[in-house]
Simulated assay, not measured.
Amino acid sequence: MLYPSIDSLMEKLDSKYTLVTVAAKRARQLQLHNDTPIEKPVSYKFVGCALEEINAEQLSYKQGVAEEDSKHQ
């Protein structure tokens, strides 16, 4: 069984695409700084730590408008 489960993660974010994007961006940040707020993460890999942070609601995201979409408005 994977931790955290995809079901619990999907309750935190609006789509699987958003989940992958947020987790990947945070994993890249962890590679550089390794500053996770989780005291004892279950995973030792950066993507796993990022998913644990999402599950613990330590990460948030703000949905933006794409540059191309804003030109048409």
Rank of each mutant, 00 (worst) to 15 (best):
residue 5 S to P: 07
residue 53 E to Y: 03
residue 5 S to N: 08
residue 32 L to D: 14
residue 13 L to A: 03
residue 62 K to E: 13
residue 48 G to V: 03
residue 37 P to E: 10
residue 42 V to N: 07
residue 21 T to M: 13
residue 55 N to H: 13
residue 15 S to T: 15
residue 13 L to S: 06
residue 59 L to T: 08
residue 63 Q to A: 12
residue 33 H to V: 11
residue 57 E to Y: 01
residue 25 K to E: 15
residue 47 V to Q: 06
residue 16 K to L: 10
residue 63 Q to C: 07
residue 7 D to T: 11
residue 5 S to Y: 01
residue 54 I to Q: 05
residue 61 Y to R: 10
residue 56 A to V: 06
residue 11 E to N: 08
residue 5 S to I: 01
residue 32 L to P: 00
residue 5 S to W: 00
residue 6 I to D: 06
residue 68 E to N: 14
residue 69 D to G: 00
residue 60 S to A: 12
residue 67 E to Y: 07
residue 30 L to D: 08
residue 38 I to R: 08
residue 50 A to G: 09
residue 40 K to R: 11
residue 53 E to F: 03
residue 10 M to W: 00
residue 21 T to R: 12
residue 47 V to P: 01
residue 52 E to Q: 14
residue 64 G to E: 15
residue 5 S to L: 08
residue 14 D to K: 09
residue 11 E to P: 01
residue 25 K to A: 14
residue 38 I to D: 03
residue 64 G to I: 11
residue 47 V to N: 00
residue 31 Q to T: 12
residue 9 L to S: 08
residue 40 K to Y: 04
residue 21 T to A: 12
residue 58 Q to L: 15
residue 44 Y to C: 02
residue 72 H to S: 15
residue 1 M to K: 08
residue 49 C to D: 05
residue 45 K to Y: 04
residue 68 E to G: 05
residue 21 T to D: 14
residue 39 E to G: 02
residue 6 I to K: 15
residue 19 L to Y: 03
residue 31 Q to V: 09
residue 34 N to D: 15
residue 14 D to A: 04
residue 30 L to M: 11
residue 41 P to G: 02
residue 68 E to Q: 15
residue 32 L to E: 15
residue 24 A to E: 13
residue 47 V to H: 06
residue 30 L to H: 04
residue 62 K to D: 10
residue 58 Q to N: 14
residue 44 Y to A: 07
residue 41 P to H: 07
residue 53 E to P: 04
residue 69 D to A: 14
residue 9 L to Y: 04
residue 34 N to K: 12
residue 48 G to C: 06
residue 9 L to T: 09
residue 48 G to Y: 03
residue 53 E to M: 15
residue 67 E to F: 09
residue 36 T to Y: 02
residue 60 S to H: 10
residue 4 P to Y: 01
residue 51 L to G: 05
residue 2 L to G: 03
residue 56 A to P: 03
residue 72 H to Y: 12
residue 53 E to V: 07
residue 37 P to G: 01
residue 57 E to Q: 15
residue 24 A to Y: 09
residue 40 K to E: 12
residue 1 M to A: 12
residue 69 D to H: 09
residue 50 A to L: 05
residue 59 L to Y: 06
